[in-house]
Write a protein that binds this DNA or RNA. Structure first.
Lengths: 208, 208
DNA sequence: TAGATTGTTAATCGATTAACAATC
DNA sequence: TAGATTGTTAATCGATTAACAATC
């Protein structure tokens, strides 16, 4: 991996390709051209071919792309063909929502454990995920390290928790707490999901 | 509003400015320079000044920006100084999470009603938000139209529901269903919050 | 083969950064 | 006033689009 520099713009489109190709596969479509793919996704055909050529060509002139093998290539580039482990920290409503409804497997993850500070939750299970005492976080990690920490706890605690899990040695943080965490500062990969930013953009759009 | 074209790149940064300025205000900071703002946000000072100049200058040479009035300007540009109304459609875990924990007011919104198909939920309240029968959606809207529909129902139903609320006349859709909805197709503003895309990007980052 | 479609190079477009005169 | 910092113009950089030879 990591042979060549891939621009953030391209990376942000990878999940879209992945999703679209899965849908084509589900619908039994065997081959697809850059222009059809582009049309489905609101991109241009040029862009699609340009994007794929970052990773070497996957297509065949005059034919297009084989859905099955292109999907496999994209999945492998993203890394969703492997299984990474994740722990959820903070089992409020949002934590519950993720544990219950989110399809981690399609993103290359398995949710292995959850942590909370609430005594009423500690020791219980949601689905087959155990909720453990947040105090056990570090000792648990030493015995059973996980790749990614999912931050769904109150925002006041987010900065300290991010520092802690980064120091523990997670490789990434999936952050729902509406504080901005910086990769440089923490030295791990971070994906911020800021509901407020998203709704403010919608606010702007409808206010125009 | 809408006098001049503002690029999507600039628009996406507006919520960040807004959040940062609110924090400065909360901390009692009275003035700020483009370079301090840039440092806080991981932008460049040039970019900050360039961004603000899209809307006319808000600063003063040799001084910088007054936090209070810059915040007011940005808030007004985004539209969060007005109160828009929103209805949540689908009160599962995620819907619950939003109703209970999300600060709609800071984004210029008031959550006025919720809809679900589950008879056990219909007629109950979360906080002070009534849950109504999804069958009443259209009749309710005619009497009490809302600006934005928040889609937190199962993804299978999302496309039809988006079509329905767009036809009813909402001005925007805040979409959590992991299907891609297109503005052109529906003719309303759309903000997609795709958890899966976000986690796949994190997957890519940690796989490199 | 003829038609279709890729991969890639070149051209265009837009966004970011640098520089600096204006001025508080 | 001198120092600081803006707003804006010009330069750079990067991303998207167009074009087309290669070829299945």
């Amino acid at each position: 991996m990591s042979e060549r520099y891939i621009s953030p713009s391209v990376i942000r489109r990878l999940p879209k390709y992945h999703r679209c190709l899965k849908e084509l596969q589900r619908n039994g479509v065997g081959r697809v051209s850059s222009s059809v793919l582009a049309h489905n996704l609101g991109f241009t055909a040029s862009q699609v071919r340009q994007d794929f050529s970052c990773f070497g060509g996957f297509g065949q002139q005059g034919y297009g792309y084989n859905v099955e093998s292109l999907l496999a290539e994209i999945a492998s580039i993203i890394g969703v063909d492997k299984t990474h482990s994740a722990a959820i920290i903070g089992v409020g409503h949002l934590g519950h929502a993720l544990v219950n409804n989110f399809r981690f497997a399609t993103c290359g993850f398995e949710l292995t454990v959850a942590f909370d500070a609430n005594p009423e939750l500690i020791g219980t299970k949601i689905g087959d995920v155990y909720i453990r005492d947040i105090k056990e976080l570090e000792s648990y990690f030493e015995e059973a390290p996980f790749d990614v920490a999912i931050l769904t706890m109150p925002r006041e605690l987010a900065r300290d928790m991010a520092r802690k899990v980064a120091d523990m040695g997670v490789r990434g943080i999936w952050n729902f707490t509406n504080v901005d965490l910086s990769e440089e500062e923490l030295g791990v990969s971070i994906e911020n999901v800021h509901f407020a930013d998203s709704l403010k953009i919608l606010c702007y759009e409808i206010s125009k």
